[in-house]
Amino acid sequence: MTDPHAYCQEKAAASGSSFYYSFMFLPPERRQAITALYAFCREVDDVVDECHDLQIAQTKLDWWRGEVGRIFDGTPQHPVGQALKDVIRQFSLPREQLLEIIDGMQMDLQQTRYLDWKALNLYCYRVASVVGLLSAEIFGYANRQTLKYAHDLGLAFQLTNIIRDVGEDARRGRIYLPVDELKQFNVPARQLLDGEYSDNFRQLMAFQATRARQYYDQAFAQLPPEDRKNQRPGLVMAAIYRTLLDEIEADGFQVLDRRTSLTPLRKIWLAGMTWFRG
């Protein structure tokens, strides 16, 4: 029989995500909990990314909705669900927010374009801000203002992901840059799909990077001093992601034909520096 928490640990480690580096210094109990949450996010995200048959992907997402119900009923079937069963009880994680993450993945099945920032903001909220809010519960906080920090930091992370993955997403037929902003900067969708660079494209991406940085700054401004220590995993993640954003910008937003990433060693260094600085 598969050990649920070992399964989640393997899922998180195999992803190589910056998320994994952000909770490596946590106490075992909280690290185990956030790893289970992250594994849940990976499972439902993989449904959309790896399942090319729309009907099968829909069926799998529906199964995960049912699994969320079973988690709260105490009868989960999947190793990730079994790991989360204890976590949701221990940290009082709300069912609605786990379902909202699935709602975000559902959006990926239903649309490949977003008309404006308001529409994209809802997607980012579901797939990232909600994860930030759940994470804040696991890390612990004394001041509810910390939830505003977690919400905005999640948005900043997702915007950074969108910038990094423009080319990769376009090759999957998805464009997460708002349609009205593509028009504003005179960047046809076909240009992204064909991987063509231009000055207009770089200006569009600089605009996206500015928005991401505004959300980082807004998040940090809302983190109460008394909760800074508990919320260090988010600060670690932010150090890694902001460095990544700086690298992408310094490279002239070469995101259509390559994926910029930081080496594991650099991520560990940034994680350690941020964590022990407190």
Rank of each mutant, 00 (worst) to 15 (best):
T2R: 00
A6E: 11
A14I: 03
S17A: 14
F19G: 10
Q32E: 15
I34Y: 04
A36W: 00
A36I: 04
L37A: 12
A39M: 12
C41N: 06
H52A: 13
H52S: 14
L54Q: 07
K60T: 00
D62H: 06
G66H: 01
V68T: 13
I71T: 11
I71P: 15
I71L: 03
D73R: 09
D73L: 07
T75E: 07
P76R: 09
Q77E: 13
A83D: 08
D86C: 05
V87E: 00
R89A: 13
S92I: 04
R95M: 13
L99R: 01
L99C: 08
I101Q: 02
D103L: 02
Q106T: 15
M107E: 06
M107P: 00
D116R: 03
K118A: 15
C124P: 15
R126W: 00
R126A: 12
A128R: 01
A128P: 02
V131I: 14
V131P: 09
L133Y: 01
S135M: 01
E137F: 01
E137L: 11
I138L: 07
F139C: 05
F139R: 00
Y141C: 11
Y141E: 07
N143K: 14
Q145E: 13
K148I: 10
A150E: 06
D152P: 07
L153M: 15
L153E: 14
A156Y: 03
Q158H: 10
N161Q: 06
I163V: 12
R164C: 09
A170M: 05
R172H: 11
R174M: 08
I175P: 10
D180F: 11
E181A: 07
V187L: 06
A189W: 00
L192Q: 04
L192R: 05
F201H: 13
L204P: 05
M205S: 09
Y215S: 05
D217H: 10
Q218G: 12
P225Q: 15
P233F: 13
M237N: 12
I240K: 01
L244E: 07
E249S: 09
F253V: 04
V255H: 08
V255E: 03
D257E: 10
R259G: 12
R259I: 13
P264V: 06
P264K: 02
L265E: 12
A271I: 00
G272V: 00
T274C: 02
